[in-house]
């Protein structure tokens, strides 16, 4: 399981790709993360992570249609592979498991 450790940003990107389902291409992903997480995402950071995740086999991609606003360049839509979704689920389960393992007393009373 250790071999499949996801970084924080990687995890967020994969989650977003999942959220956007069939609409997950560069700009849309950035917008989604920025809206949900209230943080700035640089295209450089995002694209590097996307390619890395694709290399690892967590994501797959295919070209979409070309639009005028993109100067005739096609969009590349990303989607989760079955390996990717398994990793994502495992990561989430791990988190929840760990969260549940926190003894109640450890939370300061508010």
């Amino acid at each position: 399981m250790n071999r499949h450790q996801l970084g924080e940003f990687e995890e967020i990107v994969m989650l977003t790709v999942g959220i956007l389902y069939k609409e997950a291409y560069g700009v849309a992903i950035i917008d989604e993360i920025e809206a949900r997480q209230n943080r700035k995402v640089s295209i450089g950071a995002l694209q590097t992570v996307l390619r890395r995740l694709e290399d690892k086999g967590y994501l797959t991609s295919e070209f979409g249609e070309a639009t005028n606003v993109r100067g005739g360049k096609r969009k590349r839509y990303f989607s989760l592979t079955s390996l990717g979704s398994r990793i994502l689920r495992e990561t989430q389960e791990q988190r929840v498991e760990m969260f549940n393992a926190i003894p109640r007393m450890a939370f300061p009373k508010s």
Binding site: I43, Q47, V69, R70, K73, R74
Partner: peptide, 14 residues
């Protein structure tokens, strides 16, 4: 990977 990134850039620029 050039085509789609350039497309993204153009879209954001627009």
């Amino acid at each position: 990977i050039m085509e789609d990134i350039e497309g993204d850039l153009t879209e954001m620029f627009a």
